[in-house]
Write a protein that binds this DNA or RNA. Sequence first.
DNA 1: ACTAACCTGTAA
DNA 2: TTACAGGTTAGT
Length: 273
Amino acid sequence: MPELPEVETICRSLTEHLIGQTIQQIQVYWPFAVTGWADMSFVEIASGKKIIAIDRRGKYLLIHLQQGWTLIVHLRMTGRLNYYPAAMNPMKHTHVVFCFDQGELHYHDTRKFGRLQAVPTDEALNTGALARMGPEPLSEDFRFEIFTAALQKKKVKIKTALLDQSLIAGIGNIYADEVLFTAGIFPERQAASLSETEIQKLFTAIRTVLQAGIIARGTSFRDYRDANGEKGDFQNQVQVYGRTGLSCRRCGKTLEKLRINGRTTVYCRVCQK
DNA sequence: ACTAACCTGTAA
DNA sequence: TTACAGGTTAGT
């Protein structure tokens, strides 16, 4: 569910509530949701520790604990982290509950794709997909020349390239379609076929669209909520995602869809070449 | 490079 | 009943 703007919004809303709070107790209702480290269980590692910082990397949340431990969270499609100021009964799909001095954090995930891993902080960025994660598009690590060189090496469609987390971190199906519309690029173009001008448009569109997503506090078509249970607003300003059969806001032509990499892709055949 | 798998819910 | 959903990975 959440892409970069949603995870960033969750990160910020969690930070407000949890920095400095100690995890007093953890209840795990679905054990597959959590993973420990070496011979230590997730609960053993995290219990009794204070949260000192919360970061985002791509679509991952990094909850840093004292004593050198970090909880890596990926929400996949339907994962949610809900902060409640007072004790709350777990809901049908609540898999983990963290109890603090003030309030509780509930991990909820209808489709059970998401995972929480406890790892040593200095191993966090070397763990799994995080080790191969591309640059953060909103940081100075995202460089036009490097992005250009990477695209020219790829023999996949540009939409597939945008979804490749090792090429660029944090873009998912909604923002990929929005970025390609904004850049005026047809999603089935081969990545290596883009001109420098087109890559420049794409580079700029990635940054402006993701930034707009963050300002809107994410996109809530269905499941997404921030840590306070609030919806985002970006669904009210999308150009193409979810608008198959409706008219293009720019030229009026009926928007079309196709399937790329198993993902529905919506585009305007007039505005995107 | 494409598909199935992991899951459940909702809408067609 | 079938298709599809903000993701990733392990298989052909």
